[in-house]
Amino acid sequence: MPVLTLPLGFLAAIGRAFLGLLQATGSLTIFGAHALMHVTVPPFYPGELMRQLMRIGYFSLPVVGMTALFTGGALALQIYAGGSRFNAEAVVPSIVAIGMVRELGPVLSGLMVAGRVGASIAAELGSMRVTEQIDALVTLSTNPMKYLVVPRVVAATLAMPVLTGIGDTIGVMGGYLVGTSRLGINPSNYIQNTVNYLTAGDITSSLVKGAVFGFIIALVGCYQGYHSARGAQGVAQATRNAVVTGSILILAANYLLTEVFFSA
């Protein structure tokens, strides 16, 4: 039946891809559950946690800050240009604040950190897998989940809300700088509008999103690196998958969290 071969082959390919997706989802979920279980069971490695907090949190500040600053400025210009069609230029401060804090701050911080930290974690753990350093940990009575995965996941989950908060603030400041210097908005009016329109719920949602994105970034990076295939190509693939999967999961989680926080 040659006529049937093509559609059947096509369906089989879709089926294989779907089963592969289910398998990967299950495997990542089990890996995440193991990581969470080890968070509460000693031994703990506070030195490793501090080192990861520095690497993931402190050293990501310039990337997150620059991204937020330019995005806030561009957002102010866009809202001013769009708002002027309806004589609504006055909404610039409030929309910049809400846009940055609710959506762009956490999402852009998440995506930038996924590129910087997720890739770095996957490459590091992948190299350790390939060179048997992870096996060596086991022979030294050290559980790799506790020593490698837990400090990274905890550090990213703690550091990302702080990075997000700083990113939100710098983004709003970018809008303020452009709004007051280029668009002629009164500085005190700008600040007043920003403060009036932002609620505690907006800020909470932003920080919660940051924590969830941090968890996703580190978990996916660790998972990909930990299960890296042998050779340079295996490490490269793990790194690529960490960034792509991490970014997609961040965007999906962002939608779900927005539904939870803001759906009427």
Binding site: T131, A136, T139, S141
Partner: peptide, 14 residues
């Protein structure tokens, strides 16, 4: 494993 040591092929040094 507490009383165990291993030399790996490539060293596997951290």
């Amino acid at each position: 494993l507490r009383h165990f040591g291993m030399l790996f092929q490539g060293g596997a040094l951290f």
